[in-house]
């Protein structure tokens, strides 16, 4: 039972991260602008982050889906989700009327409580792949067996 829960969470979180990375990878300039709207990232780091974050999401999501380094991937996914929650929370506190830039660089959801709830669910779903000894089948190479 726990194995299937681990597999479900792994695939769900991995799928969300891969999906989230795609539009950002295709449009780094628009993603940099979306990140800039939060007024959190200093300008020298803005463009490197606009390139690095989508790739980190893609690699993390792919690793979770394939079951490679899934504990490390779940740890990164959890950390990224916490960072996203902090960014969204700070935008809410400061009353910024911006779109989140989570999945689409052109438009997308306005920053709000619902996004925090969504990220909280995502954070909880990072837990089983991180802690369960068995979280479903994986591609059998590259990482040591659990």
């Amino acid at each position: 039972m726990m194995r299937w829960l681990g597999l479900f969470c792994r695939l769900a979180v991995g799928g969300v991260f891969v999906f989230a990375s795609w539009d950002k990878l295709l449009h780094p300039a628009a993603f940099a602008a979306a990140v800039d709207h939060y007024h959190l990232v200093p300008y020298p780091l803005l463009h490197p982050m606009a390139y690095a974050l989508p790739l980190l999401e893609l690699i993390t999501g792919t690793a979770l889906i394939l079951g490679l380094c899934r504990r490390g991937a779940a740890l990164i996914a959890g950390c990224l989700t916490v960072v996203f929650m902090i960014a969204i929370g700070s935008a809410l506190i400061r009353g910024l009327d911006i779109t989140c830039g989570c999945f689409h660089t052109d438009g997308g959801h306005a920053v709000g409580i619902s996004l925090l709830v969504r990220d909280l669910v995502l954070l909880v779903m990072c837990w089983p792949p991180l802690w369960l000894a068995d979280a479903g089948p994986r591609v059998p190479f590259l990482c040591k067996k659990d």
Binding site: Y51, L55, L56, A63, C69, R71, L130
Partner: peptide
């Protein structure tokens, strides 16, 4: 998990550098 996360971070950073260098329309 920390070790694996480190490996994934190194892969992501390498891919980022390569992606930035190879893109014709890079920022």
């Amino acid at each position: 998990p920390l070790k694996e996360a480190g490996v994934l971070l190194v892969i992501a950073l390498t891919a980022t550098a390569a992606s930035w260098a190879l893109r014709p329309d890079r920022l």
